[in-house]
Design a protein around this nucleic acid. Structure first.
Lengths: 200, 200
DNA sequence: TTGAAAACCGGAGCACTGCTCCGAATTAAA
DNA sequence: TTTAATTCGGAGCAGTGCTCCGGTTTTCAA
């Protein structure tokens, strides 16, 4: 790759990152090119599709996440490892609003630029889930696809501004659903007909 | 309202319904007007914003849903009632892909055309949830907002084509999370270190 | 150093979008 | 039938994604 091309590419990526963080995954590509002080053609040559651009932005994070899964799979409590990883997985896509839908679409579309990254991510999650299941702490009727879907749903939720205040709490609720064998608080509540004390 | 106006309005609604079912909530308004064989100005006069149009499409369903909640709150097992209603709530938005995000945005925006409908919907869910909590079968640390968020997340999930096959199953998982006191199957699995039989 | 091919750049241009605005046509009341 | 209020339809504006190609820059062999 020619020196000027490499420079343009890198600069474009940096500008794209900040623009997407600011405006979401559906930011205007023309606008990104303008901010990068580069022709529209240049942007499209380096990243033929919007997906390709997002792929470049997310790939590194995804790979890191896959490594983290292996790291967490080595040491410590399986349930705790899984929960920690789920948190990190959701945090990665946070701020890239709109990217989650593309991710979900990509995992079913082998032609997509994001496909490989998503498959890697799902595999990493599956490993952690399996370990927790073998430990008897996670539901047995869930597989890697389900986990991927739940992560997506939680990430989507965390990107809807009105739902943000609820996101952490709902994460716990769903984590409880995945890990019913985990030592935790019994949430069901007292006897039927008991006092109807509302939390919060 | 003048006779020709009423006729145009009704026709526009019918065409909009089928178009949105076919193309999602972000269907081109120009296209809807074209299909209805009506000028673009006519569409915009009847429905000044895309939200107003969707509101008109969804309002009846939402009201029905609110009534259903009251109906279900009268008779039968609280847990069963809640689950049934959740199913119906998610079914309503199914097919209107993209509408869920607008709904979520609308509940925080009092100026939105969808706002009132969403608030009604949330209130209906809250009533059913409260009853289940008083019955000691639902988690006590969840409120109407949480329920609304979970419904949204499940509806979103059910509208992502690659996740559709998982949607029903994940509904059950999350229902279990909301209703841990419900008579059901123990999903946690056997003893630690036991056989690692994968379902499916 | 020079020359020319290969690689890259930028933006004009096309078809589309949401949305506004206003002259022309239609309706309903006087 | 006249007349005034309502409604109609689409031209027009600014934005979008994406393609295409003439001109410029870099690279490297001669």
């Amino acid at each position: 790759m020619r020196a000027d091309a490499r420079k343009n590419r890198d600069h474009l990526l940096a500008i794209a990152r900040s623009t997407v963080l600011e405006q979401g995954a559906q930011a205007s590509l023309r606008d990104i090119a303008r901010r990068a002080e580069v022709g529209l053609g240049t942007l499209y040559r380096h990243f033929p599709t919007r997906e390709a651009l997002l792929e470049a932005l997310l790939r590194a994070d995804f790979d890191t996440l896959a490594c983290r899964a292996d790291e967490l799979a080595q040491a410590g409590d399986p349930a705790r490892s899984l929960v920690t990883w789920l948190h990190e997985a959701i945090a990665v896509t946070h701020g890239f609003s709109g990217a989650i839908a593309l991710m979900v679409a990509a995992i079913a579309d082998e032609g997509s630029a994001l496909h490989a990254s998503c498959v890697t991510l799902r595999a990493a999650g599956t490993r952690l889930l399996r370990r927790a299941q073998e430990d008897g702490v996670a539901r047995r009727d869930i597989d890697g696809n389900d986990l991927f879907a739940l992560i997506s749903a939680l990430a989507w939720l965390a990107d809807q501004p009105p739902l943000v205040p609820r996101a952490d709490h709902l994460f716990d609720v769903i984590a409880d659903a995945i890990l019913p064998g985990r030592p935790g608080t019994p949430h069901a509540g007292g006897a039927p007909g008991g006092s109807a004390v509302q939390p919060r």
